[in-house]
Design a protein around this nucleic acid. Structure first.
Lengths: 296, 296
DNA sequence: AAGTTGTTTTTTATGGATAAAGTTCATACT
DNA sequence: AGTATGAACTTTATCCATAAAAAACAACTT
C-alpha cells in the first residue's frame, strides 16, 4: 500500500504552526493552506479532518479556529513522514558506506528488497536512479555490479568537477557589474564570515553554505548537465560526510577560509587569481575525500 | 508475463548459424553454445529442445547434428526478439521526436502505459532512466515534466561535449608512441578512407564509425563520467538521425573529411592543430543538429 | 579432474491491484 | 465573477504474483 507520508508530514507541519501561534484566529482557507504546504487540497482536507477529530481545531458554522493545545504526542513519528523511496535511499547508502561492500560485488534486487523490507520494484527504481552516479552498472537479466566507492571514483569525479567549476567561475567573473548575482555573492561572503566566528558550535552549518556557494557560481551561465553533475556531488558528499565525521570542524573551518579567498578572487575579476583559488579549494576537497577513502 | 525474447533471439541466431553452415557435423556442447551466445545454459537448452522438436537438429544417443533445412518461416518475427523495455524506449522516442510534444508538456505514466500497451511500472522505469538525459524532470506525486528537445538543450549538450572532447583529444595526443591506441587510430583512419570511396551506397555505416572514433579518443584516459556523457550523445544521435534523414549522405561525407583531418591532427601531436580540428568538427556537428531542430 | 547433461533453486522482468495523493467537476456563498 | 467547500474521478506509489532466465547443485562420462 502507498504510504501516507505526505499527509503525515503536512499534519505535523500544521500542528507546529498551531503550536507556535502562527495560526491565530480564523484559520486560512483550504486553498490558502494548500499553497503554503505545497500539497493538494485533498491532503489538506484530510489533515483538517483529523485535526478537528482530535479537537486541535474547532469547526463552527464553516469557520475554523484553533482548539486545544498541541501535545508532543500529537505528532506523527519522523520515520513515518518520509516515503519508502527515501528510506530505500538511506538504507542503501548506509549499506554501501558502512558495510564492507567490496568493489566487484554483485547486487541482488531480491536480497536488498528483503533486507530493506520493501518490494523489489522499489529497489530496482532506486538502483536505476542511482546508477547515474557511476558506482553501479546494470547487467541485463543478471543483476547489478557494484563498482565501488573507490579512489578511482573520487579522482574521476574531481577531474570533472574541476573542469566544470573553472568554467563556471570564469563565466561568473565575466558577468556585468550590474548582475544581481554579485549581490548574492556578497551576502554569501557575509554568511561565511559569520559562520567562521561561530565555528565552534555551528560547524555543521557549513555543508548548506557550501552547496549554496557552488550552485551560485553555476547560476551565471546555467547548463543542465553541470547542474546534474552537481547533484551527484551533493549527494555523495551529503552521505559521505554524514558517515565520516572525523575532523569535521577543522575541515570545515579550512574550507570556509578557502571559500573566502575564492570569493575575493571572483570579486577581483582577475582570471588567474580565480583559477588559483578555485583549484586550491578543490584540491583540498579532493584530498579530504581521498584521505577518508583510504581509511576504509 | 515476462517476455521470452532472450530465448527467441537465441533461437533465431542458432537457426541462422545452421542455415549458414556454421554448425556442421556434431554440434557444440551446451556450455560452448552458451558462451557463444551470451545467454544462460537454461536458455540454450530451451532452444535445443525446440530445434529438436522441429527436427531442425537430430539428437541420437547424446550427439546432436543438423537436421532438415531451415526455412524462412522457422524464424521468430523480429518484433518478438526485443524486450518490452526496449519497445518502450523506441515508442517513447518516436512519440517525442515525431509527435508535436511541446516543451512544458506534462507526461502521464498511466496514459503512456495505455498508449504503449505496457504496465505503468515499465513506463516509470524507462522515465527514470531517461531522465538523466536532461529532457525530463520528475515532480514527485505529480508526474513528469517534458522539458523539450530544444535549441537550449542542444547548446548545453555541445558545450559539455566540446569541453570533454578537447580534454580527451589532448590527453590522447600525449600518449607514448608505443601505445596500442595509435595502431587502433590508424585502423580507423583506413576505415574512414574506405568508407569515403563507397560513400554513395554505404553512407549509413558512418554512424557506427563515428561512435568508434569518439570512444577511442576517450580510451586514452578513461573517465566514467565522460563515458556516461558519451552514452547520452550516442543515444540522442541514434534516434535523432533515425528520424531525420535529410541530407544524410552529404552530412556524413563532410563529417568523414572532418574526422580525417582530426585524425591527422592527432597523429601530428600538435596541440594547436588538434584543438582546431576538434572544434571545427564539433561545430559542424552542432550546426547540423541545430538546423534540424529549427525545422521542427 | 574436467567437461556433459539433468534437475532444482533463485532472481529478474513484467503485469496487475489498490490506497494515497492529485486534479477536475459541481454546487453554494458572498 | 470569484472564492469556498464537497464529491467524483484520475494518477502515482507501492506491494504482490508469476513466467522466463540465470545460477547452483547433482549425477554421469570420459
Amino acid at each position: 500500500m502507498r504510504t501516507d507520508t505526505v499527509y503525515k508530514k503536512a499534519f505535523n507541519r500544521v500542528a507546529s504552526m498551531l503550536r507556535d501561534g502562527q495560526l491565530t484566529g480564523e484559520l486560512p482557507s483550504e486553498n490558502e493552506l494548500r499553497r503554503q504546504m505545497g500539497v493538494s487540497r485533498t491532503t489538506v482536507r484530510k489533515v483538517l479532518k483529523e485535526l478537528a477529530h482530535r479537537e486541535l481545531i474547532a469547526e463552527r458554522s464553516g469557520v475554523r479556529t484553533a482548539g486545544r493545545a498541541v501535545e508532543d504526542s500529537d505528532y506523527y513519528p519522523d520515520a513515518e513522514t518520509t516515503s519508502r523511496a527515501k528510506h530505500v535511499e538511506q538504507q542503501f547508502m548506509e549499506w554501501m558506506l558502512r558495510g564492507d561492500t567490496r568493489p566487484g560485488t554483485s547486487i541482488n534486487e531480491l536480497e536488498l528488497a528483503r533486507q530493506f523490507g520493501v518490494a523489489t520494484n522499489g529497489i530496482r527504481e532506486f538502483l536505476i536512479r542511482f546508477s547515474r552516479f557511476g558506482l553501479l552498472e546494470k547487467r541485463p537479466n543478471t543483476g547489478w555490479l557494484f563498482k565501488g566507492f573507490t579512489e578511482d571514483f573520487a579522482l574521476e569525479l574531481f577531474e570533472i568537477r574541476v573542469m566544470f567549476e573553472l568554467r563556471s567561475a570564469h563565466l561568473f567573473s565575466r558577468q556585468p557589474d550590474t548582475s544581481p548575482l554579485w549581490e548574492k555573492l556578497a551576502v554569501l561572503k557575509i554568511a561565511h564570515t559569520e559562520l567562521l566566528k561561530r565555528i565552534e558550535s555551528r560547524f555543521h552549518d557549513f555543508s548548506g553554505l557550501d552547496n549554496r556557494f557552488h550552485r551560485l557560481i553555476n547560476e551565471a551561465s546555467p547548463n543542465r548537465f553541470i547542474d546534474d553533475f552537481y547533484d551527484i556531488i551533493s549527494f555523495i558528499f551529503h552521505y559521505h560526510y554524514q558517515w565520516n565525521k572525523h575532523d569535521e570542524k577543522q575541515r570545515n573551518q579550512a574550507a570556509i577560509l578557502e571559500h573566502l579567498d575564492y570569493i575575493d578572487a571572483l570579486e577581483s575579476r582577475d582570471s588567474e587569481r580565480i583559477k588559483r583559488a578555485c583549484q586550491a579549494h578543490l584540491a583540498s576537497a579532493r584530498a579530504t575525500l581521498m584521505r577518508s577513502l583510504i581509511w576504509t
